[in-house]
Amino acid sequence: MKIKKHSTRESIDGYLFILPWLIGFLGLNLIPMVATLILGFTEYDMLSKPEFVGLSNFIRMFTDDVRYWKSVKATLYFAFVSVPVRLVFALFVAMMLHNNRRGTYFYRALYYAPSVVGSSVAVAVMWREIFGPDGLLNSILANFGLPSDTAWLGDPRFAIWTLILLVVWQFGSPMLIFLAGLKQIPIDLYESSSIDGAGPVRQFFRITLPMLTPIFLFNLIMQMITGFTAFTQAFIVTNGQGTPLDTTNFYALYLYTRAFESFQMGYGSAMAIVLLIAVALFTGLIFKSSPMWVHYESE
């Protein structure tokens, strides 16, 4: 049975279902969003009235701001490394913990622990404790007779990697989503393929992975958005500075310090507009490619 598109009854029902969101969006989200889009074309120090300046924020951003391109580079590097690693790791652990063995409850809590620590102030100190000149990592390296005097967080070559490690290590949310996705795969699919003599590896590629693609799509898009708008980790660990040498000065962090610490809300808003366009483009690309690899049971 093919459902007719846009039947009146269905359209009304559709709007009824999304009505709560629509109200929230139009009533609470839209004003700040539009305001931000407008402020991008102004000079606004927050304390006096915004002044319209046309495209000058954008021109300055692209041609006359050395820190801007460094922050773009740092963010792309961060996103393109951390997102795939985090996703693969999350899927791996979800597969590992997707069973009814004894201890699974306990293990899941164990693996979710880093994500719970989240953005606590204590993380800043803990990260120094692990990556400091005489921290945990160096003492492990020393045990293996390796060079062990690197100040990881203060070294321009490695500082960003400590942040990548921090987010990969907090893989709890994509893991949990994968886990929920695994739970949703009907057991009978596995049962019938077992009868057909398929082994676990084949089952993974024939059933698990295809059935999981909608969830994978979700995780991919969300992780990508989170990666591009990464803020908290760098804010807490580098005290909002993006040090050393701007190697951890992520886009969202830079935008925030421009806006709130240098009183350049207009410039910050302009940066946000560029970010919105870039992320929207990436998201659009992923969506466009999705029919090729995402398998929906319902279609």
């Binding site: 800043a124 100190v125 120094r128 990556f131 400091g132 000149p133 005489d134 100040a151 990881w152 967080l153 203060g154 070294d155 500082a159 580098t238 005290n239 040090t243 050393p244």
Partner: peptide
Amino acid sequence: PSRDEELAKYGISIET
């Protein structure tokens, strides 16, 4: 202390 040590160790709080 060098800058990397300052960032990685000393610069967080009076206590450090």
